[in-house]
Computed example of a mutant assay.
Amino acid sequence: LTVDPAIEAELVAQLATWREERSSADVEAAIAELKRAAIDGDNLMPPSIQLAKVGGTTGEWGAVMREVFGEYRAPTGVSGAIGSSAGLADVVEFVKSMAGGPPKFLVAKPGLDGHSNGAEQIAVAARDSGMEVVYSGIRLTPEQIAASARDEDPDVIGLSILSGSHLDLVPDVLHHLKEMEVDAPVIVGGIIPEADRARLAGIGIAAIYTPKDYQIAKIMREVAELAATHRNP
């Protein structure tokens, strides 16, 4: 899926027009009442309906809910995951032989994509290959990913994107990595159309993986070799 930028711009313009034509005072009053009801534990349906009637958006409604109740983040990660070392023996030996100790592999999911299975399978396989893995979960901003890379100093950064927004998110991540002076190679995995592979490679992506690249041991070997090259260019 590739979204036409013109369609995105049109929808953003429509939202801006919608906000200009509604009564800001009515929206602010409805948001205030919704927040009060949430804090007091009252029924949220009446103020939610009122907010919708005066032109409030789901984003504004959600912002109130997050402010009052916090944001739920489902448990994700690799520490307690049970993996399989099948086929990874050669990678394990290669990782053990690397000068400077095991490579650090930062796995991240930018944007609103919540499908974490693929990223976590890769992260677990990297862990079972002897790498040090940094995985912060889903729905991260490009700025958060870059900041994590700056602080963790990984040998390789892996981005998992299945939302179709790779042509927007990947350049944004690279921009922030450059701003924070992170020079680790970046690889991308997800639903990447063939037509987009050259564009991603052209902006500096070191490797691209799609669902047809299902040989985990091969991917792990390539990640380890990429880390070794980064350490000793």
Rank of each mutant, 00 (worst) to 15 (best):
W61A: 13
I205E: 01
G189C: 06
V91C: 04
D196K: 05
I216K: 03
A207D: 11
Q144A: 15
K178Q: 14
E194R: 12
G59V: 01
Y72F: 13
G59C: 02
S148L: 06
S48W: 09
M65P: 00
N232E: 05
A207K: 11
G190Y: 04
L167M: 14
I205S: 02
V68C: 03
I82G: 05
V3H: 09
R73Q: 11
E20C: 03
V64Q: 00
M98S: 07
T2L: 13
V107G: 03
G164H: 03
P211S: 07
D42R: 15
L140H: 08
G137W: 07
R150G: 01
A126N: 04
V170F: 08
D183Y: 10
E21P: 05
K212M: 07
L34N: 03
L174V: 06
G100A: 04
V78T: 07
V107W: 01
V91E: 05
I203M: 14
V68Q: 05
V91K: 07
R199A: 14
R19L: 15
L112H: 15
P211D: 06
E28K: 11
Y209M: 01
G158Y: 02
A99F: 00
P142K: 12
L1H: 08
I191K: 09
D168E: 14
M180D: 10
P110A: 09
F94E: 05
L169I: 11
P47F: 02
S160R: 02
V182N: 01
L11C: 05
S136G: 02
A29Y: 01
A201E: 15
A125G: 14
P103V: 00
S163V: 09
E132R: 11
E67G: 10
K178V: 02
V170D: 02
N43Y: 01
Q144D: 09
G130Q: 08
G80T: 04
A38G: 08
N117P: 00
Y209K: 05
I122V: 15
V182Q: 00
T229E: 09
G55Y: 12
I216V: 14
F94Y: 12
A224P: 06
S148T: 15
E179R: 15
A74T: 04
D40L: 13
E143G: 01
A217G: 07
L51E: 10
S97W: 05
G62H: 10
H115W: 09
L167Q: 10
F69Q: 09
Q121G: 10
E132V: 12
L140G: 04
L51C: 11
S163Q: 13
M220Q: 08
R199I: 14
E152V: 13
E21I: 08
I138L: 14
T210R: 07
